[in-house]
Amino acid sequence: MTRFRPCIDLHQGKVKQIVGGSLRDEGAGPTENFVSDRPSSWFAETFRDDRLTGGHVIKLGPGNDEAARRALAAWPGGLQIGGGIHEGNAAGWLDAGASHVIVTSALFDADGRFLADTLDSLVRKIGREKLVIDLSCRRTPDGWTVAMNRWQTPTELVVDHATLDRLAPFCDEFLIHAADVEGLCRGIDADLVALLGKWGKLPVTYAGGAATMLDLELVEQAGCGAVDVTVGSALDLFGGKGLVYKDLVSWNGRLS
């Protein structure tokens, strides 16, 4: 059955909710839906107290390491960490308290070509049971293409069952943001969720667009109960109006 998994998105050292497709290295800053005056540790403590396991901290660009470490310290072993993770720093983030590291961009060269040897080396260093592969993607006429560098750069890797089969021996879970609907609160990409649910061989967490409890029910239905979901901008905890945090805690409670 579908579980709600919490998230802590960090941008410029603060907990924020932003429109994923608005992230850019140059030009105007991203579109911000919410900026918290509470530290990252407060959110981690809240998720810990409510026993919401399998959540993640995502560092969106530079200047977020301190806030990420505060969150991990508040709940050692309770959160995954992603954003700028590579072979050189992965072990350090695990030592800082992350249950898993989440990797995307480090698995590709500058032109978006997949680096199989890099993945193999990372797994040898930290173990597949500590790795989450992020296949966050953008929709194309033919399906979905993995996008790296905060969802700005398309890669050669498509999101389909063949790719999931190819990468499954190297990781413990997959995380997949639908970047085109991330932060818009206009509903999920049900087609993508259905593709993921029909695969169902490892834990998969979907993120992007969930705005109401009906969206969570749709994830469970379209994903055949095999896809978990994370919620950001629509959640009252992050200034949203479509979803109530305590309702999501209760949603998970039905599984116990």
Rank of each mutant, 00 (worst) to 15 (best):
S99N: 01
A73I: 00
A96Y: 12
K241D: 14
G208H: 06
D191E: 15
S105Q: 05
N149E: 13
G200D: 13
T155N: 12
F174C: 08
T31I: 15
G253E: 14
W199Q: 02
S40R: 07
A44M: 11
N89S: 12
L131M: 04
D180H: 08
T230G: 00
G82A: 08
F170T: 03
C171I: 07
A73N: 00
A91P: 05
V227C: 04
V219P: 00
F170K: 12
G208M: 05
V159R: 11
G61W: 00
R166D: 11
L135A: 02
R48I: 10
H56Y: 11
Q12P: 04
C7L: 10
R113D: 09
D160W: 14
L202S: 02
R113Y: 12
L72K: 05
L72A: 12
K125R: 14
E156V: 14
K59P: 07
N252I: 01
R113T: 11
A222Y: 13
D172L: 13
G92V: 06
G88I: 09
A178D: 11
H177C: 09
V249R: 08
A226L: 13
L235F: 00
T31Q: 15
N33Q: 08
V181N: 09
W251C: 05
L192H: 02
D37A: 04
W42T: 10
D228A: 12
L167W: 00
I85Y: 04
Y245V: 08
T153K: 15
G13I: 03
I133F: 01
C137I: 05
R186C: 12
G13Q: 05
D228F: 01
A98V: 10
L107G: 01
L202I: 03
S40H: 07
P154S: 06
G208I: 06
G223V: 11
L131N: 12
L135T: 01
P141K: 06
L216A: 03
A234F: 08
V57Y: 10
D111M: 09
D65H: 12
G200K: 13
E217F: 09
H177D: 09
E173F: 10
G225T: 03
G21I: 13
I18V: 13
N33L: 12
G61K: 01
V35L: 13
D25R: 15
T140E: 07
R69K: 13
S40Q: 02
P62N: 04
A179K: 07
A234Q: 09
G78Y: 11
V231P: 06
I85A: 06
V19Y: 06
L214T: 14
G223A: 06
S233R: 11
G55V: 10
L184I: 11
S22F: 05
G78F: 13
H161C: 05
S99H: 01
A179G: 04
F114Y: 15
K130V: 08
K59V: 10
H86E: 14
R70L: 13
T153F: 08
A96H: 07
V227G: 02
A178N: 00
F114Q: 12
V101M: 08
T31K: 15
L115S: 10
D49V: 04
L60C: 14
G208F: 04
D165W: 07
S22G: 09
L10H: 07
T31N: 14
V19M: 06
S36A: 15
T155V: 15
D180L: 03
G21W: 14
G29R: 07
A44W: 04
L196Y: 03
